[in-house]
């Protein structure tokens, strides 16, 4: 066998990001099996992983894990390049941008729950704007804002609490 001329040596960072992205992908695939009353209202369990990555390893790693989750998750679910994929991407990108800002809030006062709430609201915000601009070019989509806002509040709180708890109990790897 010819020896490959390209050598890719994964660094320790690569391995860690891959492991964390796997956890996020597993959660989003598992979540896809939960029947939900309204498209777009989802617990967003993968965001627990994103929050943990953000708080333990920083924003750069969180971006990697979140985007790998969006791409690989959509490939596994057969959603790649379908509308759902773009919605998911828009939500992820917006929420990463917001997380990049709110992560600088003083940690003495603001914990994972605040980050999670901001991320959840950014998620629905990004998705609604894309939906308004592209999928449903009509202000009627905003009629659902209160439903999405309630979902973001509830799931943002729950995910933030779980992330905070896991950060406390997971061994520092």
């Amino acid at each position: 066998m010819t020896r490959s001329t390209i050598e890719i040596t994964p660094t320790r960072d690569d391995g860690r990001i891959a492991r964390l992205a796997t956890a996020a992908i597993v959660l989003s695939v598992a979540e896809a099996a939960i029947p939900l009353p309204l498209p777009g209202v989802k617990p967003g369990l993968a965001n627990i992983v994103i929050l943990i990555v953000l708080l333990r390893w920083g924003w750069r790693d969180a971006v990697w894990v979140a985007l790998l989750r969006v791409f690989a998750g959509s490939l596994l679910l057969g959603q790649f390049l379908a509308p759902g994929f773009f919605m998911s991407l828009a939500g992820s990108v917006t929420s990463l941008a917001v997380l990049g800002l709110v992560v600088h809030l003083p940690p003495r006062w603001f914990g994972p729950v605040t980050l999670s709430l901001f991320a959840a609201f950014a998620h629905i915000g990004g998705q609604l704007l894309l939906a308004r601009a592209w999928l449903v070019p009509h202000d009627g989509v905003f009629y659902l804002v209160p439903v999405f806002a309630l979902a973001a509040t509830v799931f943002g709180l729950v995910n933030g609490l779980v992330a905070g708890r896991m950060l406390r109990e997971l061994p520092v790897a």
Partner: peptide, 11 residues
């Protein structure tokens, strides 16, 4: 115990 003062504000 996981909730910090700002978290209540965010909530």
């Amino acid at each position: 115990a996981l909730l910090r003062p700002g978290d209540y504000m965010a909530l």
